Amino acid sequence: MATMSDVAKAAGVSRATASYALRGDPRIAPETAERVRRAASDLHYTTNLSARSLRSGRSGVIGVAIFELDKPYPSEMSAAVSREAARHDLETIVQQTSNSKEREISILRKVTSQLCDATIFSPGNISPEEITALYGGKPLILLDDISDEPLFDCVFTPCEDGAAAAIRHLIDIGCEHIGVLGVDYNALVDDRQSTTVSGRRLAGALRAFDEAGIDVDERNFIPVDHWGTPGAREAARELADTAGGLPFDGMFCMTDSLALGAIRGFADAGVHVPDDVAIVGFDGINEGEYSVPSLTTVSTDLNDLAAKAVGLLLDRLDEDARNLPQEERAGVRRLTADYRLIQRESTRR
């Protein structure tokens, strides 16, 4: 079986150059890359790429690196991206970043740069500068990029407008004392938090309160570690035990998982949703439709998010295929997915 060294020798290049060429690295001159691919094909070197990809320089595979795939929303998002990719005859390799910087680095270095034509990536612990050094020059689309000076195309979830819609809905159904579960009121004091998902949802909630002329302070906001269902359940129990009674008649939860945990915690304490407290979640996960009560939610349009992310990716792949010089390529683009508020039993009074 031919090795990478055999391919390099046949093409008259170094082993490193041969490796980069077979991965489609744009830093390799087109004529050199073609010579390497021809040598690999002649030697039947197909360990990492199919014969088709050796001819075209493409594998037909995109990477999808998402946090916490064991939770409903990231899993449903990945499925939507995979469906959209399949519509364009692309396969997907889905990886879990696990909120670990080392894991994110490993995925970029070992998987996406070597096996994939392009990547849709949800960064959590790695800086744009580190991404630039690791991603191998292939198209990279970020999800919810938190950087102040964007280097890559990005698709955002509709955090600010969606959170504002949730607060307005609670006001519209008559709630006068509204709590927000899952974020610290003082989070925006740290500029680095302002572009995070939680920071943008907090900003949207504060905007809606301000527009409605409702004064809020830190007592209206209840942080929950890791946005986990168990933490939300415990927080709801504690709120139900507040001296003088439950302080809220409406609650916006930063995610549907938090909302479902809160509903369970209130039920444990004998508090009824929506009669005693109305609850709105955010994300639109499938479980919310079947909970008791069913969950009112700000539902991110995952099909729209996937279409926008894959569309950006295809545009960048097309620019690479045409070898456009940098000055003729589109600038960094930032899109936001659509959303809709779905009213169900948890706010139906």
Rank of each mutant, 00 (worst) to 15 (best):
Q96W: 05
D190V: 00
L341E: 03
G136R: 12
I178P: 06
D210A: 13
Y290I: 15
E34F: 05
P325L: 12
R334Y: 08
F248A: 11
F156H: 15
R207L: 09
D184V: 02
I285A: 04
L258P: 01
G331D: 04
K9F: 09
L22H: 02
G204R: 00
A164S: 12
T97V: 00
H177Q: 15
I131V: 13
R237D: 02
R23V: 03
G261F: 04
S41A: 15
G57L: 10
P128A: 08
Q193Y: 13
V13F: 05
P293K: 10
R35W: 05
E102P: 00
R264L: 02
N220D: 12
A306D: 03
D225K: 15
N323E: 13
A306E: 04
V13D: 08
T229I: 14
F252Q: 01
R329L: 10
I285F: 06
M251Y: 03
E345A: 14
V277G: 01
G57T: 10
P158A: 02
G24Q: 00
G265Q: 05
A235Y: 01
L151Y: 08
S127D: 09
A267C: 00
T229Q: 15
A86T: 07
E31N: 04
S113P: 08
A307C: 06
T32S: 05
L302Q: 15
H272C: 10
R27A: 14
G311E: 12
P293M: 10
D25C: 11
L295R: 07
G12D: 12
F67C: 15
F248P: 05
K308V: 06
A33I: 05
T336C: 02
S82Y: 00
F152E: 00
I120M: 10
G270F: 03
I167A: 06
L142R: 06
I141C: 06
D320G: 10
T297P: 06
D153S: 11
L69F: 11
L239H: 01
P274W: 05
A259P: 01
N48M: 15
E31H: 11
I28T: 09
I62H: 10
G270C: 03
V298D: 00
D145L: 12
V94P: 07
S299R: 15
N323L: 13
G63Y: 08
I93C: 00
S194M: 05
F209W: 03
L151T: 13
N286F: 13
L115N: 11
T196M: 03
G261T: 06
L312A: 03
S257T: 11
E289M: 14
G199F: 03
K71T: 14
N303T: 15
F221L: 04
T97L: 00
D184A: 09
V61A: 12
A166R: 01
I28P: 09
D172I: 06
S19T: 13
R322Y: 09
S5K: 14
I28D: 10
R233N: 11
P247F: 00
D304N: 15
P30I: 04
D161Y: 05
V224Q: 07
A21T: 02
L258F: 03
K101H: 09
V61Y: 12
I62C: 02
T112E: 13
V180I: 14
A29Y: 07
S59H: 03
T195D: 05
R38K: 15
T255G: 10
A243E: 13
V224M: 04
